[in-house]
Amino acid sequence: MPARTRLAVWGDPIGHSRSPELHTAAYRHLGLEWTYDRRRVDRTGFGTALRSLDDSWRGLSLTMPLKEAAHDAAHDLDRHAALTGAVNTLLLGDTLRGFNTDVGGIVDAFSHAGVTSVGVARILGAGATAASALVALSDLGAAEVEVRARRPEAIERLRPIARAVGVRLTVADFATAASDVDVTVATLPSGTVLDTAIAAPLAAVGGTLFEAAYAPWPSALAAVWPSANVISGFEMLLFQAVRQIRIFRFGDQHRRLPDEAVTVDIMRSASMED
């Protein structure tokens, strides 16, 4: 392995990030003497910070507002990063390789909950996470995805992604009567509270809910959903981190770690202890 042992998560704000606990627990279990820290970096300072890294650095995790900047900085993009225009993982070296592990993290979160295929889905919100959710739903087999957002113009950025992955995209506002779907992915900002007259009908026909927000928990939306059909956004955080660790270890987010199930359990426990 190259002698690059430093990693970190960058973003702004960053103090709340649970990534250091997850990654550090995994590297300890895997016997890797790698350090993983957090650093506050805003969009303006991203380029300078990236250029300042020396050969001791192996990779970076990126959170908001740096995913688009990391996408633009990468020399090589994986399929999910190219589709979404967002990079949350950079593997450093002679070639700067950019990955999006949020997509796979959503797929893995659904799969872990027993949802391995989707026909019709609904996305609430049209921000950056919605793009990853749309690609994840396509990877799970969705042929049709309805999007509801407070700003319909924000949905326009999702249309070329839907065409690229062969998904029929429909648009509705929150007041429109909802039809049955297999799953609902909520990508609304943390703390969003939908009126009960809106949330309750969505819960009644929304299938399994994946709620991207996980703090505070339960979210207002998760609280009105049948509890047996709710997946916390922590699951995406956990499984996208597993994929990042695969990248930092092997350069490939699809190559499983040794004893991976145990590693995942250790990461989950580490977060609960924090």
Rank of each mutant, 00 (worst) to 15 (best):
K67P: 03
D12T: 13
E33H: 14
T129A: 15
R159H: 14
A186I: 05
V264S: 00
K67S: 04
A199P: 11
E33R: 15
G119H: 14
A131T: 01
S56D: 08
G233D: 00
D55H: 15
L221S: 06
G114A: 07
A128C: 10
N88R: 03
G47Q: 11
V183E: 01
A131W: 04
V264D: 02
L60F: 10
A154R: 15
R18C: 11
V181A: 09
V115S: 06
L66G: 07
A203C: 08
A270R: 01
M1V: 10
A136E: 00
S138K: 08
A73Q: 03
F234L: 09
F239Q: 09
V205Q: 03
G125T: 01
L140G: 07
R150K: 07
S111E: 09
R58F: 08
L92R: 10
A149F: 03
L137N: 01
G93S: 05
T95V: 15
R38T: 02
A86D: 00
D108E: 15
P218T: 11
A131S: 14
D94Q: 15
V165E: 00
A212P: 12
W57I: 02
T263D: 02
I231S: 09
G233C: 11
H75F: 13
I14Y: 06
T89G: 00
A172D: 03
R249N: 12
T187C: 07
A178Q: 08
L22P: 05
K67N: 03
M272K: 06
R4P: 04
A86W: 04
V224K: 05
S232I: 05
A270S: 09
V224Y: 04
G206I: 06
A241S: 14
L30F: 11
F248G: 01
A86P: 01
P216G: 04
E21P: 14
S132W: 13
A126Y: 08
G104D: 10
V103I: 03
A81K: 00
W57F: 14
V264P: 02
R38S: 04
L238P: 05
S271T: 13
V171A: 12
H254D: 13
M64F: 09
V165I: 10
H254A: 15
D139L: 11
A197F: 04
S117V: 12
A164I: 09
R268L: 14
T129K: 13
S52F: 12
L257Q: 07
R255A: 06
A149D: 02
D139W: 13
P189A: 03
D37L: 12
N229Y: 10
V230Q: 01
R40K: 07
R249L: 14
V145H: 07
Q253T: 11
E260D: 10
E68H: 14
